[in-house]
Amino acid sequence: MRRLKFILLTGLVAALVPLGSARAQISDTDVKAAFLPRFARYVTWPPAAMPKGDDPYVLCVIGTDPFGGLLEQAARSQSIDGRRMTVRRMDSTAGSNGCQIAFVSGGRGESTGQALAQLGNRPVLTVTDSNQGGARGIIHFVVSGGRVRFYIDQAAAERKKMAISSRLLALAVGVHQ
């Protein structure tokens, strides 16, 4: 009986802990949205692909947008070398000129693979999500070990004349060279 009480009490304590925990669990989408604008800090674009004058960096979502307002929220707090970041959304790669970062997911206009092919070797940091299928950009999000991580295709970045900082490479679960 005592033992039973002990088990019940332990169970009760376990049940109460989450109520006291202030920090709610974060979804993978929240973390991916937080990552996206930050990638700009760890990537060097060829000068021609950089924003002109005081223009902000442009983070594009090509296809379906899983983030809603999260991207604006994440982009708002970023300032990279004094430059701000804006978010643009588009159905297809048409109109993607000026994007430094592009989150590519299949949409009404193009599939992820088609959009990536359209971007070709243009110096755009393409980002894809394993949730949205198998096609891969330079950065490919996965959820691994309950954490949001990514694969980095460094060879593709080099073809696009972009350099990726070793600090970002160190966080990748795999780097394709």
């Binding site: 669990q25 990552f35 929220q73 994440a74 970023q78 309950g146 949001v148 966080l171």
Partner: peptide, 24 residues
């Protein structure tokens, strides 16, 4: 912003180590 949306103060390493609800 209120948690959990506000991740802006975390470093990129901290983001990579943040446990998330899996979307498996």
């Amino acid at each position: 912003a209120e948690a959990p949306g506000d991740l802006s103060n975390l470093s990129i390493e901290q983001l990579a180590n943040l446990p998330v609800r899996s979307a498996a």
